[in-house]
């Protein structure tokens, strides 16, 4: 009896150790000139856009949708990214999107652009810029299949790092309302004991959840 409990305890300990290795470490830095939330009134909406002007990476749409869903869950009205980009075409394409406030100010001076933004009731624009990358890999795994069956043996691990920055622009006052940066990192494992067992660390999901939750705190609804 004692021997069985000891064996079970050992297995449980191993499982806990493995699962604890699958949690991401996430850090959030926030800058805003005031600790008061931005008050959204009536039909005012927020649009969350990904930066896509860098050559070697682009902020993926899946991440933008994930953050948008998080922010929407707080009761904040978020206009879908593609709907905004199409409505204001061609001024938010990778080639033409304003990279800074001076360019935004010049764009808003065009009466039809200002009118379109007003008609869509968009008050705040959130730029998301960043990516998730694999920073290191280790181990090896080999799989074989034969007439009598198949299986995988070995161990592989990889580290992922998500770095995203959010910048909030006020489209009415044409000022920057704040910045957020999230860094999330973690290691995933693949253990091959006949069947490959993945122990994945949801680095990007953690970054999305943390950034979305923090963005929700930026805004309050009147």
């Amino acid at each position: 009896m004692t021997k069985t409990i000891g064996k079970l305890g050992g297995q449980l300990g191993l499982l806990i150790m493995l699962l604890s290795g699958c949690s991401a470490t996430t850090t959030i830095d926030e800058y805003r000139p005031t600790d008061q939330p931005i008050v959204l009134s009536g039909d005012e909406k927020v649009v969350i856009l990904g930066r896509r002007d860098a050559g070697h990476y682009e902020t993926d749409r899946e991440f933008i949708e994930c953050v948008s869903d998080e922010v929407t869950s707080g009761g904040i009205k978020v206009l879908p990214e593609q709907q905004f980009i199409d409505a204001i075409y061609p001024w938010f394409e990778p080639r033409t999107a304003p990279k800074g406030l001076p360019r935004l100010k010049r764009l808003i001076q065009q009466n039809n652009v200002k009118a379109k933004i007003d008609s869509l009731s968009i008050r705040y624009l959130v730029w998301l810029d960043g990516s998730t990358e694999t920073t290191g890999k280790g181990g090896s795994m080999s799989c074989a299949i034969g007439p009598g069956g198949g299986g995988c043996f070995g161990f592989a691990q990889w580290d992922k790092l998500s770095v995203y920055e959010a910048t909030v622009w006020d489209l009415d006052e044409l000022v920057e309302k704040g910045k957020l940066r999230v860094d999330s990192e973690g290691t995933s494992y693949l253990i091959g004991v006949v069947a490959p067992i993945p122990l994945l660390t949801p680095v990007k999901n953690d970054a999305c959840g943390s950034l979305g939750n923090q963005l929700k705190l930026f805004f309050s609804i009147k």
Binding site: Y89, P90, E93, P94, R95, T96
Partner: peptide, 13 residues
């Protein structure tokens, strides 16, 4: 499609 959209943006700009 992204290249065609870029052509439209380039033309306008």
């Amino acid at each position: 499609i992204i290249a065609l959209r870029d052509a439209g943006a380039k033309l306008m700009l």
